[in-house]
């Protein structure tokens, strides 16, 4: 195994982590401010990807599609918040799980109703086509580097938003004391709608960017949703910093597990068997890591005060 391959795999893990962070940031923000578990977050991811694919196909520009994905996901988020979600803030987590589970069914079938059953086409923009050389002789896909950059910018932007702006101040206030912020005369329901739309837009952005690498189809949000939940639980629900850390951890553990476990097992097993057992273990790995972390730290690594 060469250093170049190792560097490449670490970058791959980082990129997967960054992508998960975009999903997880929205989830954890919504949970932190409103106390809501949103299973339908994966549907917003799907909406972003569909919007980007459709608009990119119509206009011929990926970038306009990317913009459309932000707008579409934020709009869908705002509408759902106003129609459904805001009735759930006062309910227990169980009702939230059920209601957002129902929303998944409706979004998935609705998307199929509107856009048909066949996967849509979305390609990487010409600007980011191809690969760049890595130190040590490897190559790395330019577009994936682009995703890493966007993820870092979003993390930075969120940090500035929350620590430096008026909206961020209200979000922080909302996290620590809900009654107080209402008493201060902040329009709490508008704040909630804005936060939900922001989380939705981040999910939509992730969906659009990943859509160019994967297949844009109904149900694409579900595997990512489960991973994003793993991320925020490991990081500590409600903590953006935790989401960033958890996302990178999950991304790297998952990628390295898929890469190294089958190889390690060839030391004790014949190649075919090693590939099978290694693959099986790799698919369970992040859940094992999550269980271990929660066994030691029951509220995640960066638990927000509850």
């Amino acid at each position: 195994m060469s250093t170049a391959l190792l560097i490449e795999q670490l970058l791959n893990g980082l990129q997967l982590g960054v992508m998960l962070f975009l999903m997880a940031a929205g989830l954890t923000l919504i949970f932190g401010v409103m106390g809501l578990i949103n299973l339908a977050h994966g549907s917003l991811y799907m909406i972003g990807a569909f919007a980007c694919a459709l608009v990119a196909a119509a206009t011929g520009s990926f970038w306009i599609g990317l913009l459309a994905s932000l707008v579409a996901a934020a709009a869908a988020g705002a509408i759902v918040e106003i129609l459904v979600i805001r009735r759930l803030y006062e309910r227990d987590h169980l009702d939230q799980v059920l209601a957002t589970f129902a929303l998944i069914l409706m979004f998935s079938e609705g998307a199929r109703w509107l856009f048909g059953s066949f996967p849509l086409y979305l390609d990487i923009p010409p600007l980011l086509q191809g690969a760049v050389p890595l130190p040590g002789g490897g190559q790395y896909q330019l577009y994936r580097l682009g995703i890493i950059t966007v993820g870092v910018l979003v993390a930075l932007g969120l940090y500035l938003l929350i620590s430096r702006t008026r909206l961020g101040m209200r979000i922080r206030a909302g996290e620590s004391d809900r009654e107080m912020i209402a008493a201060l005369g902040v329009d709490i329901s508008t704040l909630y709608t804005v936060v939900f739309a922001l989380g939705a837009a981040l999910a939509g952005l992730a969906g659009a960017m990943v859509g160019a690498l994967q297949s844009v189809q109904v149900g694409m949000g579900e595997p990512v949703l489960i991973l994003a939940f793993v991320v925020i639980v490991i990081g500590g629900i409600g903590s953006i910093k935790g989401a960033l850390f958890g996302a990178v951890l999950v991304g790297i553990v998952d990628t390295m597990g898929r890469f190294l476990l089958p190889q390690a097992l060839t030391l004790v097993l014949p190649p075919s068997q090693a590939a099978l057992v290694g693959g099986a273990l790799a698919s369970m790995l992040i859940y094992i890591v999550m269980a271990l972390i929660l066994a030691v730290r029951p509220s995640g690594l960066f638990a927000a005060q509850s």
């Binding site: 195994m1 060469s2 170049a4 391959l5 490449e8 795999q9 791959n12 893990g13 990129q15 997967l16 490897g138 190559q139 896909q141 994936r144 990943v210 690498l213 994967q214 297949s215 694409m220 595997p223 990512v224 990628t255 898929r258 890469f259 089958p262 190649p271 075919s272 590939a275 099978l276 290694g278 693959g279 099986a280 790799a282 698919s283």
Partner: peptide, 24 residues
């Protein structure tokens, strides 16, 4: 000859790690 044999996760959507191994 087989250059390598891999089993990926069912429903997996990111193949960067596998493609890197193919290259190597």
């Amino acid at each position: 000859e087989l250059a390598g044999e891999l089993y990926t996760q069912v429903g997996q959507t990111d193949y960067a790690a596998e493609i890197a191994q193919i290259r190597a």
